[in-house]
């Protein structure tokens, strides 16, 4: 019964929300519109070949600037996460280890086990082998 009364809140709540929605739309649009109007009236855009070209410290860019990164880099991301996040949590753990309750130690142990699982996965995948 309590739930039902909460759901059937007075329409003024939704009125507030709609006012917020309108403000959220108008608030960014007005400055953008004013800036567009200003630039249209006073400072016209001057696109050009040099200006539109890629910025390469003043040197003429060679080839496409849409460089593709190898998706294999995700392995570095995962291993970084395992070792770095672990280190970040292990240092405060080591400092406060003697004052921790059993529950806290178990929680940390589960967390480290989760990360170790990732390490084991990477190991079996052969990522750690230097090629």
């Amino acid at each position: 019964m309590q739930m039902e009364t909460n759901l059937m809140s007075p329409p003024s709540t939704y009125l507030f929300l709609s006012i917020f929605l309108v403000v959220a739309i108008v608030f960014p649009l007005v400055p953008i519109g004013l800036a567009k109007l200003w630039s249209h009236t006073f400072t016209p855009a001057k696109p050009g070949h040099e200006k539109q070209s890629s910025y390469e410290c003043g040197v003429v860019p060679v080839g496409s600037t849409r460089i593709q990164f190898k998706s294999q880099y995700y392995l570095y991301g995962i291993i970084f996460l395992i070792f770095d996040v672990e280190a970040v949590f292990l240092i405060p753990l080591a400092v406060a280890f003697l004052d921790l309750s059993l529950g806290a130690v178990l929680a940390v142990a589960v967390f480290i086990l989760l990360l170790l699982e990732g390490l084991a996965w990477a190991w079996t995948k052969g990522v750690l082998k230097w090629q």
Binding site: T43, E50, K51, Y55, G58, V59
Partner: peptide
């Protein structure tokens, strides 16, 4: 000099 001029060209007005 060509780099300096190109950088100038790439700056937006004013």
């Amino acid at each position: 000099a060509p780099m300096v001029v190109r950088l100038y060209n790439q700056m937006p007005e004013p």
